[in-house]
Write a protein that binds this DNA or RNA. Structure first.
Lengths: 214, 214
DNA sequence: TTAAAAATCACTGAATTCAGGGAGTTCAAG
DNA sequence: CTTGAACTCCCTGAATTCAGTGATTTTTAA
């Protein structure tokens, strides 16, 4: 019979990890196997220590290198038995939605209380998912006015072009950089303006920045 | 003879505060007087409890309402005996510089180690200021290539125009909104592009967003 | 395998931006 | 009082963006 749960923590804010550790150490049945500041290291650790059963990964959303979203995807794909709890300081509806689609087991804001953290961990370990009421309302808001959120799915090329636009490159420059015709870039720009429902370069740039694309 | 230092913590990330608390509680001579998630409350608390000597305020940089910068200013003005340590997840050179000018006693990134946190607190309590090597290098970089940072001081009107540009308004619209001639707005746009050393609307928008102007 | 999506290129014409110049007024500080 | 900064307005011409439409090829997914 298993009485101890093994936990891995990934967060580049060491001080936060320290805090998290001191909170979890007060719980007898929660054992921190490993902490790291890089998403890549989690995957490396799991591949090397396949014999050690890991129950839960607690990870930050924003990290250098592999971020929380990509990390969660990899985990769910390669180690589907490991539960994941994402903790973030931001409450980015789109990212939360994306995480849920990837099968994340819980999401907490960093301004959650200690009791809520433990409650979330307990829920997840017992097989339920945990999303705070606040997060749930954000998600619902996302889904209801999905007209605005409406799956503005950009293609790879569109993303590239958008990035370069936001970096102040002119159409001709982008064409040269991507070895495409100037007309092609103009088409992409036009489509982007339509898709993202903005009016001009300023709007495109805002979108790019607000979606962490540059 | 004083052996215990009184500390106040202001941070809207409760989980972080919990962590901080559990770290500081291991130190006998560090006593947490009060924690809060709002900058305003710190000032209120200090005004009410003027009899209690407070030695150190640890505060986050980004908070809703009064942020770390404004809070630090108020503290240094009204309670100059209280030392201040700002902890942030961002390493924003401009904001750090601004804080030092306001007389902050230390700055730490949230990815600092627990040992560094305590070292910083000890330094500050003993009368020295504490800035990590990393932060120092950021500050020096700020000051040395101050050509680029060069106090790009925007006038009130320029800021207004810049904001509206970043909000996707056309020149004509801005002119109408501000009851000015279209030519005037064009002049402002031109000056902004010069002053900020950008090339087009995308650059202006980036500047506006990166400087929290919208 | 077939339909949909993505990627590419093209044309036209109107609207806007960008670059460079000049110039008058007001208001505060030296 | 005068110097400078901020604010306002104007002109020209080139460059770029924006809007609408359409079409071919390749890739992807049903």
């Amino acid at each position: 019979m298993k009485t101890v749960y093994n936990i891995i923590i990934a967060d580049d804010h060491k001080m936060f990890v320290d805090g998290l550790r001191s909170i979890l150490e007060q719980e007898e049945d929660l054992h921190i196997l490993h902490t790291t500041s890089k998403g890549e290291e989690v995957l490396k650790y799991l591949k090397i220590n396949q014999n050690e059963p890991v129950d839960l990964l607690i990870t930050d959303l924003n990290m250098p290198g592999i971020d929380g979203i990509a990390l969660n995807q990899s985990i769910k794909k390669d180690f589907p038995t490991i539960k994941t709890l994402v903790i973030s300081m931001l409450e980015d509806g789109a990212k939360i939605k994306s995480l849920t689609e990837d099968g994340v087991n819980g999401y907490l804001s960093k301004n959650a209380e200690q009791t809520e953290l433990l409650k979330a961990i307990r829920s997840i370990l017992s097989g339920e998912n945990y999303f705070s009421v606040h997060i749930q309302s954000i998600l619902i808001k996302m889904l209801t006015n999905s007209r605005k959120t409406a799956e503005v799915r950009l293609t790879q090329r569109e993303k590239e072009v958008l990035q370069l636009i936001a970096k102040e490159h002119t159409t001709q420059e982008i064409a040269d950089l991507l070895f495409l015709s100037k007309h092609t870039i103009e088409s992409y720009r036009k489509n982007l303006i339509n898709k993202l429902e903005v009016r001009n370069l300023a709007g495109l740039t805002r979108y790019a920045i607000e979606h962490d694309m540059i």
